[in-house]
Amino acid sequence: MHHSFEIDGVDHRLWLSNSQQGYRLHLRDQVITPVAFTYHSESSGILTIAGESEPVRFAIEGELIHLHIRGRARILRYIDPLRTLAPANDGTRPLIARAPMPGVVVATTVSPGQSVSAGMALMTIESMKLETIIRSPQDGIVDRVHVKEGESFEHDAVLVTLSKEGR
């Protein structure tokens, strides 16, 4: 079972192995030998890859690895198989409308207890100067509205939870 890192929503499988010269990096379509990292401080170091040295700035935040190499910054997420292979969709959890992007709630059009059908507008959010309507992912009853008008939220935040009818 390979290790996996997500960059911009795309998973990249890889594996590191030991060799006499240091580590070997196995990517889907290539093997790079040797690769090494020398720490200079808790946020900087030198990456050696295929004979070239690259200064690196890094910051680690849980499963997120923030890197700055060759003038470019990227965020990679280490995918812990134990977590990602245990999908939450077991049918007993409430249905959730999540924020597709960070923003601010402009208006809420439903209130708890109200029954809604799939596709019905739940709230209007504002992000990037544009308004987006958050719609119900399925039929159900509004259980809770988590963010009030004027409040801001981050990407993937739970905005509205629904429950199945008759639960």
Binding site: H3, F5, I7, D8, V10, H12, L14, W15, L16, S17, N18, Y23, L25, L27, Q30, I32, V35, A36, F37, L47, I49, E54, V56, F58, I60, I65, L67, I69, R70, R72, R74, L76, Y78, D80
Partner: peptide, 28 residues
């Protein structure tokens, strides 16, 4: 997207404990 990707992946791999650990655990 692909520019320099392998350097980022290499760096992330080398900075991630479980990735290094699984390489180091394998007998020589």
């Amino acid at each position: 997207f692909a520019t320099g990707l392998s350097a980022f992946l290499a760096c992330a791999a080398l900075l991630t404990g479980p990735v290094r650990a699984s390489a180091n655990a394998v007998p020589e």
